[in-house]
Design a protein around this nucleic acid. Structure first.
Length: 256
DNA sequence: ATGGCTTATTGTATAAGA
């Protein structure tokens, strides 16, 4: 089983990249973030022609999450139960016996912003929700754009980023609380190259200079941990014309 | 040198991303 996550920064713009990528990689599950379109504009037909079913929770201009799979998706839910949130940031479905949760965690803008408080509250609600989900679905994967670089090795210049949004201690603590639920950062289950990142700023020739952050993650529950075979960041879509600023993270598992 | 780019919007500048 191959799972992937990709913040596409507008599916309207990036649909050709997504279609090419699924044709090449044939993932069993692809979670998308920042589709930035209403459900009525979502390209269900083009994906169906490519052999993929899709579920989407979107809105105009901002946010929007989707799960693509050639397999049957059951028990679809959107949003975090009990969290009053206008923003379309979470969608979940069961594929086989695996619960797939696709999340676009808020960016937070800056640590002195109201959006930062919203981010921390959202992460708290996410943890509470996942604690319940894990009790119901032992095999669970949380894929998405976390907007958190968990450790200094996930940051190109830790000194320059120290204390800033995406790396601040309360955000990293929220990430550790997710880990404490028994959700493992699958990328770190394996040996990886130094300076492995999933996002690079559009400015400053950041991709060419590898000035990036690792903020897109695939966390897996205890019951899936031993099934993990390989996890990697696929930088190839970041090299295309008009790329997303994020690139896919991919996890291969033994389970069907 | 605190910007640089990209996206969407009833836009010709602004907001947001990270």
């Amino acid at each position: 089983m191959k799972l992937a996550t990709w913040n596409v920064n507008s599916l309207n713009v990036r649909l050709p990249h997504v279609l090419d990528w699924i044709a090449l990689e044939k993932p069993d599950v692809l979670c998308l973030q920042e589709t930035k379109q209403e459900d009525s504009k979502f390209p269900y037909d083009a994906l169906k022609e490519a052999g993929y079913n899709a579920i989407h929770s979107g809105q105009k201009t901002y946010n929007g999450v989707a799960i693509l799979s050639p397999h049957l998706m059951e028990d679809v839910s959107t949003g975090i139960p009990g969290l009053n949130d206008e923003q379309k940031r979470l969608i979940a479905a069961t594929i086989g016996d695996v619960r797939i949760v696709c999340a676009y965690i808020p960016n937070g803008q800056s640590v002195d912003s109201d959006k930062y408080q919203y981010k921390l509250g959202w992460l708290e609600a996410l943890s509470a929700y996942l604690k319940d989900e894990l009790a119901r679905y032992p095999k669970l994967a949380l894929l998405g754009d976390y907007n958190i670089a968990p450790e200094d090795r996930d940051v190109h210049d830790p000194a320059a980023w120290a204390g800033q949004v995406l790396v601040s201690e309360p955000e990293r603590e929220a990430f550790r609380i997710l880990s404490a639920l028994g959700l493992h950062d699958s990328f770190r289950l394996f040996e990886q190259e130094d300076s492995s990142f999933s996002w690079w700023d559009y400015r400053m020739a950041a991709f060419r200079r590898n000035l990036g952050l690792r903020i897109d993650h695939i966390l897996v529950s205890d019951a899936l941990k031993n099934d993990c075979l390989r996890c990697w960041i696929d930088k190839s879509p970041r090299k295309l014309e008009r790329p997303s600023d994020h690139t896919p993270v991919v996890l291969e598992l033994t389970c069907a």
